[in-house]
Design a protein around this nucleic acid. Structure first.
Length: 369
DNA sequence: TCTGGGGTCCTAGGACCC
DNA sequence: TCTGGGGTCCTAGGACCC
């Protein structure tokens, strides 16, 4: 979806259409927070998502700052996904404003290169929500994602296998989903800037620099190769609640506020888990200090839980293990190793006698030479 | 008085067990 | 004057994504 949060706000505030708009924090750009989405008019001033609100004001004083309204974005998110599902039901959720769609078995895909189907999806999304989106059609998720970024907003880009050299190789390596700021900087330090340069690099060199797994993966994706399936459902692994304070808290002088916040986050998290009927066995806390250093501590319980008292108790035990030597900017609680409520507890590992396979000879583990 | 919140996956070391 | 090898679980940190 194009500038999703900003575009949703403009549906309610047509008076702001054409003006620079940024969504972030509580809508007050003098307070702590970042821009989550900037309208294209705001982007023209250099306002970008992830940028400090205060910095955005400096770049664009006339920018309108609106508070983040997750419930409304969630509502429009459901609508656009339903509109897509009516055309192509095999959809992988990639967050609130993005999906992968498997078009390979959709009737009509054989008639052209996917352009007509993608145009139909764009039309239906707009009809259902009033919002525009950008679509990339390609042989795999890696290329589709890059393609969807080539023409924005309201774009439609087809990338075939034979187009990789012409359309993909000139792009910066950073455009690959999975190459972030750190990997990009290291690539640049060895003279690799574009995807084409990455493709031309011997895989052994990448393995030497980035390790076997990541190095080989880089070589594959640089050639446009990706065989990940479109995954239509996955169980959640963890859930967390965290908050950044308006001012950095002193670990002793502001202890009351720190403790009250942790307790309140634990209560919220327990409520969210219970509402979704999940329980988890590992409870953790996360702190961000004023120097932006992050520490985590976690604790695995004998039994999975969504109980507020147990989560809070474990969270405070974790917090007690953190050396509090600086002011604290953020605190959060997480429950991981989630399972559905009522699912059988992970029992102690059972010892099962190995059954000799009839297909394979019963080989000794070591050659007794 | 720059830098949110909610996730996933990977790595690496130590404990522990057989 | 010795102390292997393999597997799993737990913990902590880090990169990356939306």
């Amino acid at each position: 979806m194009d500038a999703f949060y900003a575009s949703v706000e403009l549906l309610r505030r047509p008076d702001l259409v054409g003006r620079p708009v940024a969504i972030g924090g509580r809508g007050d750009p003098t307070r702590r927070g970042v821009v989550t989405t900037a309208s294209y008019e705001a982007r023209a001033f250099g306002v970008r998502s992830g940028m400090a609100l205060r910095h955005a004001v400096e770049l664009c004083p006339q920018c309108v700052f609106l508070p983040f309204d997750f419930d409304e974005y969630r509502r429009l998110s459901r609508r656009f996904k339903e509109a897509i599902a009516a055309v192509a039901p095999t959809i992988e959720d990639r967050g609130i404003d993005e999906v992968y769609i498997d078009l390979s078995h959709v009737p009509g895909i054989a008639d052209d290169d996917g352009r007509a189907l993608a145009a139909e999806i764009k039309r239906r999304v707009h009809e259902a929500t009033g919002l525009s989106c950008s679509i990339g059609v390609a042989p795999n998720k890696l290329l589709a994602k890059i393609a969807s970024d080539l023409d924005k907003p309201d774009g439609l880009t087809i990338v075939r296998e034979q187009d990789v050299e012409r359309l993909i190789w000139p792009l910066p390596a950073r455009r690959i989903n999975g190459i972030g700021p750190k990997a990009d900087a290291r690539l640049a330090s060895i003279g690799i800037h574009t995807i084409g340069e990455l493709a031309a690099t011997a895989p052994e060199r990448l393995v030497a620099e980035f390790g076997a797994s990541y190095g080989r993966w880089m070589h594959q994706v640089a050639h446009g190769r990706d065989d990940r399936p479109v995954v239509t459902f996955s169980e959640p692994k963890s859930r967390s609640c965290e908050t950044t304070f308006d001012r950095d808290l002193h670990p002793r002088r502001d202890w009351q506020e720190l403790a009250a916040t942790l307790a309140s986050l634990a209560r919220r998290l327990a409520g969210e888990l219970q509402a979704r009927r999940y329980v988890g066995r590992t409870i953790g806390v996360k702190l961000r200090f004023d120097d932006f250093r992050i520490v985590t501590r976690d604790l695995t319980l004998p039994q999975a839980t969504a109980d507020v008292v147990q989560i809070r108790k474990a969270a405070f035990e974790c917090l007690a293990r953190v050396p509090l030597d600086r002011r604290i900017r953020l605190i959060g609680v997480r429950v991981s190793a989630l399972v559905r409520e009522g699912s059988p507890p992970a029992s102690a590992p059972r010892r099962v006698a190995p059954v000799p396979s009839p297909d394979e000879p019963d080989l000794p583990l070591f050659d007794p030479v």
